[in-house]
Amino acid sequence: MLPQFELYRPTNLLEACRLKAQGAVVVAGGTDVYVAMHGGKLRPQALVDIKGIADMQEATYDQNSGLTIGALTTHRTIEEWELVKQKYYALFEGCSQVGSVQIRQRGTIGGNICNGAPSADSVGPLLVFGAECLVVGEKGQRKVPLAGFFTGPKKTILADDELLYKILVPPPAPNSASAYIKYTRRRAMDLALLGVSIYLALDKSRIEELRIAFATAAPTPMRAYQTEAKLRGKDYRSISLADIGKMAAAEANPRSSWRASREFRLRLLEQLVQQAFTTALQRAEGGDL
């Protein structure tokens, strides 16, 4: 049994914001919230279930503006969405590896982001696609780059009254590809011990754009901006894979815990960056994805 709480199920966005401002805990798919409540870690007075807010469920694609993903879109929806596979492969790779089918059926992309876990599988891919968050509060809405959304472990920029409303993902360049590598001890039902996402746009062999993001490599999901900047404009044949790995890993700041040592994570990161880069490169050159 979950501890007792008051349940609100608004269908109106502002009503939800108002309830949140009053202290109600937002619940979407509940795959983080109910786990925390079962374990006694979270004992809210009130929950506001936002699943009744219809336009937060919508997910659309437009070739000019890209993806507009309602925060309530489930990982399963993204996993099964052919267009995502075609244009945002890393996002498919991220969402399709969250937990299990049952978890993906309920768990939402908004919940994944707002939960603020450094291991969140959808976040790295969204970061490298340059996603922005549309945030709504009682006084209106604002647009925040996803890269600026996280302020610490489990901490975000959302104000007391604010909800993540939609996620906007620009369309990828036609000559681009992406990859997400999730490293886990177990091959399913596991959180990323490390995750590496890469978005790569090529002009022949010149790196037109490169974005790299890490999961579980720092207190929050992060981008490897310096490495990206150094490589942008370069001919990829002129740089060694190993150097890319080293450079990117140097930007990370993983910690030692009983899950793995910092030393190991850094070593692994070098490898995974190389693998992700190679994979993205192959996909870009293959022309598809």
């Binding site: 177990r186 091959r187 399913a188 039902m189 596991d190 959180l191 899950r259």
Partner: peptide
């Protein structure tokens, strides 16, 4: 999740 018994995929 943290105590890892093999899944189908393993």
């Amino acid at each position: 999740v943290d105590y890892k018994v093999p899944t189908f995929q393993d």
